[in-house]
Design a protein around this nucleic acid. Structure first.
Lengths: 134, 134
DNA sequence: CGGAATCCTATGCGATACTG
DNA sequence: CAGTATCGCATAGGATTCCG
């Protein structure tokens, strides 16, 4: 399977909302290296391929292609081709894509708020685990 | 770097709350294959190693170890050793770990609510992309 | 029981080159 | 410009075995 094509389909025991595996399912979709960056970058409106590439920075065209494909496949992003020469392709968040931003932003806020705590815990842990590495 | 040891430290331009890269940062932490499952499994209280392994199902002891280590390192999970023979080790969510569940649950709810939509979009996309595969 | 160490494969993903 | 195709390395992560 190509990167960006995550399987959401699950034969696992999913019963109540917020169940572990459903969460893992979205996470597998959005938790890859680039999807969120793309989704967030599309917040301000439609963007063209190379525009996205430039703004995001550090993403290869290969991964941008795969990521956009995956998002498009899941209905989070729409792709509009204007067959001029050279061709012009615009990517835009769908309604579903925009709705995803809400919980993602929440996670982002949590991250932002707790980053110091996490880093502190990490430093403490690493100090205790490798006292010889002084 | 071992699995489960994600780098949260970032030299990237992080400015406003909910910024792309901060989100990516948490996602890199909890977005791996198992972390969320472990965190969610610990909701009901402390669990022992093999208990977690059994409940989660499908996880190798290697990955459970790495995942727990990573979560412990970030202060999301606490590890309590009872040096009996055989030894007993209990894992429990910390306050930070429990606070993480809130945004994660939100994401889970979104997933649960939109799974049908996503699957429909996916089916439609796959049908259009490979019309020859009939 | 809980975990560490080693092995091995599948995949992620960047770099590069080519096409319409 | 917006891809696609091929290569190649680095990592994730499962299976297995050994240890306290």
């Amino acid at each position: 399977m190509e990167p960006g094509h995550t399987e959401v389909t699950e034969a696992q025991p999913i019963h109540r909302p917020g169940d572990c595996r459903v969460v893992g399912t979205v996470l597998a979709r959005v938790g890859d290296k680039w999807s969120i960056l793309v989704v967030m970058t599309l917040t301000d409106g439609p963007r063209r391929f190379n525009e996205l590439k430039r703004i995001i920075g550090g993403i290869s065209q290969r991964m941008l292609t795969f990521t956009l494909r995956g998002l498009e496949r899941d209905g989070l992003v729409s792709r509009t081709v204007t067959p001029t020469i050279p061709p012009r392709v615009d990517y835009e968040l769908t309604e579903l894509g925009r709705s995803l931003q809400v919980p993602v932003q929440a996670l982002g806020s949590w991250a932002f708020a707790n980053l110091p705590t996490i880093q502190a815990a990490r430093t403490r842990f690493d100090a205790g685990a490798e006292p010889d590495a002084a």
